[in-house]
């Protein structure tokens, strides 16, 4: 069954209203607000413009509240006013394309990368990436998890040649700052650089943020890029400093069983 063509009146109303709704400040809204009388009637208590304003004033707080919920620490670092200004610029540039507000920040990392050029750029971009990974880990898909149970003996023997796909909610991240420490301190000042490797994922309904070693991060990154387990280990060995190499040899089986326990790979 084909979908129907819309009447012209709907086109006109919705084009006008959308332009108005996505205009973030009074100046850019004015030209569209001025057309209220062309589309709407007044009531005995309110003009057409006042009635329209009920809808217009509702959009921005709703979106800003949602972004503030997802990025509480970026908000704290930037301060209330700068955070709002940046988010309004973002929403003007990238209106919501999803039925859910959960996906509102989808293009936020790219937007900041292209537009945020202050001295604290590296810290801000890292913090944004950290908070967006934590937010996504909370709601993106959980697929059936890989387990060695049910594998035949020959399949178990050939695990080394297997390519592992990570759950969509698993984020293997490297940051130039220790954001967890910074968050725990509750300071608004930027912290010193300190490289950290994190595994961010969900178990049941809970988001877990685990500090991992550089070599584990490297191994998981190779796996995520599509290497077989054997190749990923080989590449991780080649790139690992000697101290990390010992960790790789002694802890590989622990990492593997933890990955299985937490179901971070897709069946």
């Amino acid at each position: 069954m084909p979908q129907p063509d819309p009447p012209q009146l709907l086109q006109d109303v919705q084009a006008w209203f959308s332009r108005l709704r996505f205009a973030a400040n009074a100046e850019s809204q004015a030209q569209w607000m001025d057309q209220a009388d062309q589309f709407l009637t007044a009531s005995t208590t309110m003009s057409a413009r006042e009635r329209l304003d009920v809808y217009v004033t509702d959009y921005w707080p709703r979106c800003l509240d949602s972004l503030a919920d997802d990025f509480p620490h970026l908000r704290r670092f930037l301060g209330e006013r700068d955070f709002s200004n940046w988010m309004i610029r973002y929403l003007e540039s990238c209106p919501s394309r999803s039925y859910s507000l959960y996906y509102l920040p989808t293009q936020l990392p790219q937007f900041f990368d292209e537009n945020y050029h202050h001295a604290d750029r590296a810290f801000v971009l890292g913090l944004l990436r950290y908070e967006w990974a934590v937010a996504q880990a909370g709601f993106v898909a959980q697929k059936p998890a890989f387990s060695t149970q049910g594998l035949s003996e020959s399949e178990k023997q050939s695990l080394a040649s297997r390519r592992f796909t990570f759950q969509p909610h698993v984020f293997i991240e490297k940051f130039d700052y220790d954001f967890q420490l910074w968050i725990d301190k509750g300071t608004a000042k930027k912290t010193k650089k300190s490289q950290t490797h994190l595994l961010i994922f969900r178990v049941a309904a809970e988001v877990k943020i685990t500090v991992i070693s550089a070599v584990q991060w490297q191994l998981y990154t190779y796996l995520k890029q599509g290497s077989t387990l054997a190749t990923a280990i080989e590449l991780a060995i080649k790139s690992a400093p000697e101290n990390d190499l010992i960790a790789l040899e002694t802890q590989l089986s622990t990492w593997m069983s933890e990955a299985m326990q937490f179901g971070i790979w897709v069946a």
Binding site: L9, Y59, P95
Partner: peptide, 25 residues
Amino acid sequence: YGGAHLHNLLPLPYTADIAAYVADK
């Protein structure tokens, strides 16, 4: 509208054409 979501439930103009359009959907 135009692929963008307004995150609100907005009323429609009440015409027979629009009723038919929405009913088809």
